[in-house]
């Protein structure tokens, strides 16, 4: 059964991991607030943060620019519990939930995720009883829907969804560049989620911004097809066009990115057959790329270990 929220969530989500920064590295709240205003005014609703983003500053920015400025029913807010970053104890990991509630002031979370499950860390979520913990918070009314974000093999995803069939949704890295990537396995993971009947939230649709500035031969393919469309629009519409996708998270960093995204996602139309053919040609070109697939998420630094 397709979840009700999947049908009612607008297709563009505001990812709060790459918010605008001041020169000293703090989140620039005035610009963020303006981005929030434009996002909501365009009819979008989904905001995505995490306990670990910017060492908590992202959740606090959500409170200051969103929660304290808008009625609770105007938006949905997602955040995440990370059982492995910083090597927390079970108690510390579970305490992230309370801290997130305090930081955001949201009262409850519309979506709550077990964060970044990978081959080397998913065991901690079992060991600490996090699966049951989030269900307990849901029963208390503090979580509306819960799922997990995932970065590993289709086999592990299949196993997790088999072991935890009550999972309501999954968040996957999906973009056209990683669609057939041997490690990211975007297509295969998407297909596993669909086989299990799980709605999918798309993350890294623009691959950390890399797909917003493609090499000239790729950019030419896009502009030859549609001179007015940005490269980022192709990437975000690719994810949003897939059946079963709830929303596509874009980690927007400035007003220009927000305006560009809203220009085509306000009245979203899936990729046409002609556009899908262009994307396939782009995928062939990117298959020859030697670039390192770093998205600049900074999980490898910033106190994640």
């Amino acid at each position: 059964m397709e979840q009700d929220f999947a049908a009612h969530t607008p297709k563009l989500g505001f990812g709060l991991m790459r918010l605008p920064k001041t020169k000293d590295g703090a989140i620039e709240l005035n610009e963020t607030a303006e981005m929030v205003d434009r996002f909501l005014a365009a009819g979008q609703t989904y905001f995505d943060t995490a306990y670990v983003y910017d060492n908590g500053a992202s959740e606090e920015a959500a409170r200051k620019t969103l929660v304290e400025r808008y009625p609770r029913e105007r938006y949905t807010l997602a955040t995440k519990l990370c059982a492995w970053a910083g090597n927390p104890t079970e108690q510390e990991a579970k305490a992230q939930f309370t801290t997130s509630l305090e930081r955001t002031g949201a009262g409850y979370f519309d979506f709550y995720l077990l964060h970044a499950l990978q081959a080397g860390n998913y065991q901690l979520y079992d060991q600490y009883g996090i699966w049951d913990f989030v269900k307990e918070q849901q029963q208390k009314g503090l979580i509306r829907h819960w799922g997990f974000s995932f970065h590993a093999s289709p086999a592990l995803l299949d196993r997790l969804l088999t072991d935890h069939p009550e999972t309501e949704f999954v968040q996957l890295q999906i973009n056209y560049a990683d669609w057939e990537h041997p490690d990211i396995a975007a297509r295969e993971n998407y297909e596993v989620a669909r086989r299990h009947g799980k709605p999918v939230i798309v993350m890294e649709p623009v691959k950390g911004g890399a797909l917003a500035n493609p090499k000239p031969e790729v950019a030419k393919l896009f502009t030859d097809c549609n001179p007015a469309a940005s490269a980022a629009s192709w990437a975000i519409r690719f994810g949003a066009s897939l059946p079963g996708v709830v929303t596509v998270l874009s980690g927007m960093s400035n007003l220009a990115q927000m305006d560009d995204n809203l220009s085509y996602m306000r009245a979203f139309t899936p990729l046409s057959a002609e556009e899908r053919a262009v994307v396939r040609r782009v995928q062939e070109l990117l298959g020859q790329s030697k670039a390192i697939g770093c998205t600049g998420c900074r999980y490898c630094v910033d106190g994640w270990h």
């Binding site: 080397g120 490690d183 270990h305």
Partner: peptide, 13 residues
């Protein structure tokens, strides 16, 4: 190797 363990892109950082 802790950076590689944390990398969601599974890169040998």
């Amino acid at each position: 190797g802790q950076c590689a363990a944390a990398c969601p892109q599974l890169l040998p950082v």
